[in-house]
Amino acid sequence: MQATTTEQKPAGTKLTGNRKAVLLLLQQQERALSAYEIIDLLRPQIGRIIHPMLVYRCLDFLLARQLIIKLVSVNKFSALPDGMTEPGQCLICEQCQAVVFSASSNPLQQQRRKIAATGFKLNQQPVEFHGICAACQKDKLK
């Protein structure tokens, strides 16, 4: 997964040290992380215990600016790949938790347009697919 650079943030976005640390951690991972996994991984970098509410506030900020997404089915978070602001499909490996994004497919875009035409505001949530990635399938055959 390509990392989204913090310089490509929408106008008006202010990344504090904590927000930047959470975003950079998510960008470095090829798997989705829960808030508590983020806390565990950041603790050695920051050198102190991080309160869960602080991480959730950072995640809310990053979600609102479409720098990350929440994968609802696994209750985890992932940074969006470079240049992607609207994930269409999300492939989640059930073994290693790797996440792969693809742009919206044509039928999905059409459906979103139909929904928008009704006046309903649709959240930008990807369609999530669960399965086993190619690397885990190869490992299983060994």
Rank of each mutant, 00 (worst) to 15 (best):
A64H: 15
L26R: 01
L42A: 07
I69K: 10
L59P: 07
R43V: 00
V74H: 09
V72C: 10
M84F: 08
G88H: 13
Q95P: 01
I69D: 03
N18I: 09
S105A: 14
Q95Y: 05
G17V: 14
L67K: 09
S34Y: 12
K76R: 15
S105V: 05
I39R: 02
I38V: 12
Q45P: 00
Q28N: 13
F77S: 10
R48C: 12
Q29I: 00
P87G: 11
V100F: 00
L67A: 04
A32Q: 06
R31T: 11
L41S: 08
E30G: 04
Y56G: 02
M53V: 15
Y56H: 10
C96Q: 10
A35G: 08
E86V: 15
C90Q: 07
L59E: 01
P52V: 13
T85K: 09
R31E: 15
L42P: 13
D60V: 00
L24K: 10
K76M: 02
R31D: 12
E37K: 05
N75H: 11
D82W: 09
S102D: 11
S102H: 15
P107R: 12
C93P: 09
G88N: 11
L59G: 01
F77H: 09
P107V: 06
Q89W: 00
C96N: 12
F101K: 02
K20S: 00
H51Q: 14
C58K: 04
I49R: 15
L26T: 13
C58H: 07
Y36L: 13
A98L: 01
C93I: 05
I46D: 12
R48Y: 15
I38W: 06
Q29V: 00
M53L: 14
Y36A: 09
R43Y: 02
L54V: 12
L59N: 04
A35F: 08
S73L: 12
D60F: 08
M53G: 06
V55M: 08
F101D: 03
C93Y: 03
A98N: 01
C96R: 07
V100A: 10
P81G: 01
Q97A: 07
L59V: 06
L80I: 03
A79L: 12
R57S: 06
E30N: 08
P107E: 11
I39S: 03
L71I: 14
L80N: 04
L63E: 13
D82E: 10
M84R: 10
V72K: 15
D40K: 10
E86C: 04
G88V: 08
V72Y: 13
G83E: 11
L25N: 05
L41W: 05
A103Q: 14
L91E: 01
I38G: 00
S78D: 01
G47P: 01
K70C: 05
F61M: 09
A64L: 14
N106V: 12
I38N: 01
I68M: 09
L71W: 06
F61Y: 13
E30I: 01
L26F: 08
S78K: 14
G47L: 04
